[in-house]
Amino acid sequence: MAAQMLAGKGYKVVYNLSGGFKGWQGEAAFGAEEMGLELFTGDESPEKTLTVAYSLEDGLRDFYLTMIPKVKNDTVKNLFTKLAEIEVTHKDRLFDEYLAITAKTVSRVAFEKNTVKDVAEGGLTTKEYINLFQPSDWESESDIIGLAMSIEAQALDLYMRAAARSANPQSKKVLTRIANEEQTHLAELGKLMERI
């Protein structure tokens, strides 16, 4: 019904998802439209947006690192290490973009002083993630990839909602770019899942 209406209103390409959300059988994001948006109120400058995003990636990296000594399986230890490294790459990318946007030269240490603590990607704390997704087996590689995919899905969702709300066109671009990166991460994790 909605798809028909859009097509009738001049929307060029409209697809109806048969089976609706129940038929989706893929990664899902949870929570109300406003969830996590206390971090991105919509008024942030691109610099502030990048600082918050950096904090989220950093929180997730910390989470992966704290998991390494808690598991016994070496393959899963390596997986957590790899997941943490991906977040470092993403943090580097965000810092580079920050430097490109701000005219000032800022050291990484000075930049990190402005970051927010105790947040992870998607706007939930790592404790909240664990409660929400509850991997059935922390020693199982596929369960951990599943957890990481859930977190990336949540992050993608948060950045898309933040981009939709942002009143600053440049911040909107920054957020959209990060959302696209999260989608790439998600696709890569999906491929990794298929390989094991």
């Binding site: 028909q4 097509a7 009738g8 697809y15 109806n16 998802l17």
Partner: peptide, 13 residues
């Protein structure tokens, strides 16, 4: 009528 005649494709998941 246009909105009822415009074809909409369906995608499964």
């Amino acid at each position: 009528w246009k909105q009822f005649l415009t074809p909409v494709k369906s995608f499964d998941a």
